[in-house]
Amino acid sequence: MEEMRVVEVKRDILAGNDEKADAFRAMLAERSTFFADIMASPGAGKTTLLLALIKKLRERGCELDRMGVIEADLESMVDALKIKEAGVTSVELNTKGVCHVEMGMVERAFSFFENRAFDYLFLENIGNLVCPSEFDTGAHCRVMLLSVPEGYDKVYKYPPMFAAVEALIVTKCDYLSLNPDFDMAALKRQAAVLNSGIKVFVTSARTGEGLDELTTWFEGRRHALLD
């Protein structure tokens, strides 16, 4: 009987991806560009939060042409058009069924910016709480969104995502009064178990709650990158 051999393809794929991610991250740092990867399930409010964050950054002096967004979706240009309508340069990245974003995709999307200089670059990742957490996209920080209508129990169902990010942004907190079963304390407690360094923001793009604190955090992360 021939010897059975197991080839760990996933590990090899991730290793190659990580090497590209490190190089990309270093290149952006040299350009003073802070790159954030925003992950969440579909409907959590990624685009809406991005638009609110862009507005706050602009109020604090960041010019629109110093911000860029890579919009990743399976299909369509719906979200990219929303970003462009707000005056921010965006590139639509259609994965054609792939449920995550890899470095090759990021590099190709970034090439369409044609070497434009940004202070902030954002990736709105595929709507998925599983696969995106496994792939390094070259970002300087990774955050995830969890909307109140989704329920707090996602922290128990999708632990790798919570463990992979620097910040958990609870969105649509204006719905808390309509969802009395949402246990914020349990969410924060379990998130800390999975990730002792995680920062939690409770926000609402509709009312503006928590957006100033979140914007200050992003500014601080960029300054930390440049120091």
Rank of each mutant, 00 (worst) to 15 (best):
T203K: 02
G43H: 01
A36R: 13
R221V: 12
Y120P: 03
M1Q: 14
V101N: 01
L28W: 07
G208W: 05
V200S: 12
E166A: 12
V78E: 14
K199C: 11
E63M: 15
V155E: 05
A139M: 02
L49C: 01
E209T: 09
T33L: 07
D37L: 09
G151L: 09
L49V: 02
E19C: 05
A164F: 01
E3V: 14
T207G: 03
E8G: 10
L64I: 10
F182H: 02
A186G: 11
K154I: 08
M4P: 12
A36S: 12
S177Q: 15
A192V: 15
G197H: 12
R116Y: 10
L57D: 00
F162N: 02
E102R: 09
F135V: 05
E59T: 11
G97Q: 02
D79G: 00
S90A: 13
G104W: 01
A139P: 07
Y158S: 08
A163R: 08
M144R: 02
L93M: 10
F24E: 06
V6R: 13
L74R: 10
R25M: 00
Y156G: 11
S76I: 13
A26F: 11
K188R: 15
G16T: 09
C62E: 14
A80M: 02
Y175V: 08
E219F: 07
D37F: 09
V91C: 05
D136G: 00
C131I: 00
E85W: 05
P132E: 07
V165F: 03
R66C: 09
Y175N: 11
D73R: 06
E114V: 08
S177K: 15
P149G: 03
V143R: 05
L225S: 10
L93S: 05
V130T: 10
D212S: 08
H223G: 14
A29S: 10
Q190K: 15
F218R: 02
A192W: 14
D174L: 02
H100C: 00
M105K: 03
H140L: 04
A185V: 15
T95P: 09
A185Q: 15
A163V: 08
E166T: 08
F24H: 06
E71L: 03
A185L: 15
K172Q: 04
D181G: 10
E107A: 06
M103E: 01
A21I: 00
L57F: 06
K84R: 13
R31K: 15
K154A: 13
L14N: 02
D181S: 13
E166Q: 13
F118M: 08
L49Y: 03
P180S: 07
A86N: 04
A26L: 12
A15L: 13
E134S: 13
G104I: 04
G45V: 06
A205W: 10
S111W: 09
A163I: 05
G68L: 07
E166S: 13
A40D: 01
V155D: 04
L194F: 05
E209G: 09
I169N: 03
K199T: 13
M161W: 05
L194D: 03
V69T: 00
P160D: 06
V202H: 11
A36T: 14
V202F: 11
L225T: 09
E85Y: 09
R11F: 12
V170H: 03
